[in-house]
Amino acid sequence: MFTEPRSTTPVVGLHGRLFAASMLAFVGLFVVGLAALVIADVAYVVTDVGPANLGDFAAVLFSAEIRAALWLSIWTSTVTVIIGLIFAVPMGYALSRYRFPGRAVVDSIVDLPIILPPLVVGLSLLVFFQTDAGRWIEAAGLKFVFQTKGIILCQLLVSASFGIRAVKLTFDGIDPRIEQVAMTLGCTHPGAFFRVALPMARRGIIVGGILIWTRALGIFGPLMVFVGAVRMRTEVLPTTIYLEQSIGRIEVALAVAILMLLLAAAALVTIRMVGLGER
């Protein structure tokens, strides 16, 4: 009969305990280091603002500019996720299932934005829209340079690879045999994809979507080059941090940073819960 799997530990002596302790020490060091950064940020904001100025601080933090930036960040990242997944699902499936000449090269190209400095993406986009093809696209009514649409384009190019990779890994983990059985039971190949592979990949797709979202939320470099930092127009949260610190309001910049941190943390916890099936 089926029994629930449980984690098991072998009998270990002193060496084993020391080994485990040293491994865990690295985990602790890294986490403490990151936590120290966050604590320092919070402490700076709290001491710098002081109880007397709390009202003014809140007014700045919830000003129209920052609210607009927050809203722009959220909706552009969300649109990026939708477009990103429209690409990630078929691409992840194709790269996982089909063998074609030059597949290794294509696979590497898909990963390029993960390795490339995001700034290069912005610079490349700017250059591209100076070419004939770019100008033609803009002339056709699709304007990206210094536009909100440009934010989404930057976010998509920088973050889609994370989603594609996550979805591909999920399809890699699904035995093609299961789809084949569905085909013997009356499914067409697309039918087997929609009725079997896609529902089975649901978790991986959600994880991919969250990865795209968090990455899109955080990009800054390419936006500065491609869409600029115009308040209330192309200002997203990372832009706000840059603008606030450039005019000397470090405490506001840090407060926005902490807000972004909370958003990202919520997304990462969701990934863990969805991806690993933890309740």
Binding site: D175, R177, I178, Q180, M183, T184, T188, P199, R202
Partner: peptide, 20 residues
């Protein structure tokens, strides 16, 4: 003919049940 039109009952080695 495609697998779906051959009208065969196929039970693979690992059974490949639909986990969802």
């Amino acid at each position: 003919l495609e697998p779906r039109n051959r009208r065969l009952g196929y039970v693979p080695q690992d059974y490949a049940l639909f986990p969802h």
